[in-house]
């Protein structure tokens, strides 16, 4: 079943067409990757799907509903979470609180209840804290829960962002270059974590430049160039696609596939 369907979506900035009638689908339970050179329109496409940008034409359907043009918070509530290319944590508050903010759309205490600390609000607050701590533990940062997010190293911030996105209890998780800025062992751990997330029932769509990570974990890959789709298929098919080799992967790809085989 298609969880996400992107149908001939187009978006331009001034005279530059960032996303040019792109269509693809993400099926339930997949890990799907979008790759392409810088400026191919990957992040713009992410921004359209998550509601930060409005498409000029085309449709985005999530769980069968048209979400094109909805506000980001509505899309998050519908079950689509994302991370950002530059980790966008709330730096003034703690790691724990960051992840608790992720649970915002699954909780309901409002101004009055929070002022008065009603029993329901206290119960909810405790539950939020417990599940946030569990998610922080899940990404391996249990000992950093009380630290201000601003005090974390770059790689750790990525993990907190991941935990925060998972806290929204998504059905589909969009990861924008999750491995950038990570070292090799961190990238390996990330790959395992993404597979673990997929196995827990969350579908994953990621934009990534790290080819060994992409080839290792993806079920399907979409290749963009200059805003348009140039190939789509399994990692093996993509590696052998002459268009992809010509336009994008070049000799780098051979290294990646060689290291994968060894």
């Amino acid at each position: 079943m298609a969880l996400l369907e992107v149908d001939t979506v187009r978006r331009s900035f001034g005279g530059v067409v960032a996303v040019d009638r792109v269509s693809f689908r993400v099926d339930q339970g997949q890990i799907k990757a979008i790759i392409g050179p810088n400026g191919a329109g990957k992040t713009s496409l992410f921004n359209i799907i998550s509601g930060l940008l409005k498409p000029e034409s085309g449709r985005v359907r999530f769980k069968g509903q048209d979400i094109g043009g909805r506000k980001p918070y509505q899309i998050a509530r519908a079950g689509l979470a994302r991370t950002f290319q530059n980790p966008s944590l709330f730096l003034q508050i703690s790691v724990l609180e960051n992840v608790m903010v992720g649970q915002h759309c699954r909780t309901r205490s409002e101004f009055a209840g929070c002022c008065l600390k009603t029993p329901g609000q206290r119960r909810e607050e405790r539950a939020m804290r417990d599940s946030a701590l569990a998610r922080i533990d899940y990404v391996g940062l249990a000992d950093r829960a009380a630290a201000p997010a601003g005090a974390l190293a770059f790689g750790q911030r990525r993990m907190v962002e991941l935990a925060r996105a998972l806290a929204t209890e998504p059905d589909l998780l969009l990861l924008d270059e999750p491995a950038s800025g990570l070292n090799m062992s961190e990238t390996d751990e990330l790959g395992q974590l993404i597979e673990k997330i997929r196995d827990s029932g969350v579908t994953v769509l990621l934009v990534e430049h790290d080819m060994s990570l992409v080839m290792n974990i993806s079920d399907e890959i979409l290749v963009l160039d200059n805003g348009a789709t140039i190939a789509e298929g399994s990692p093996l098919a993509i590696q052998n696609d002459p268009n992809v080799i010509a336009v994008y992967l070049g000799s780098d790809f051979k290294h990646a596939s060689a290291s994968q085989k060894s």
Partner: peptide, 30 residues
């Protein structure tokens, strides 16, 4: 009452907005 408020779901949401409005919105905060 205000102190309770700032240390609650609502207060966290407000501080999140203050810190990074786009990310707060993408996390499901209106």
């Amino acid at each position: 009452l205000l102190r309770n408020l700032v240390r609650s779901r609502v207060g966290r949401a407000l501080r999140a907005i203050h810190d990074h409005e786009t990310a707060a919105n993408a996390m499901g905060i209106n």
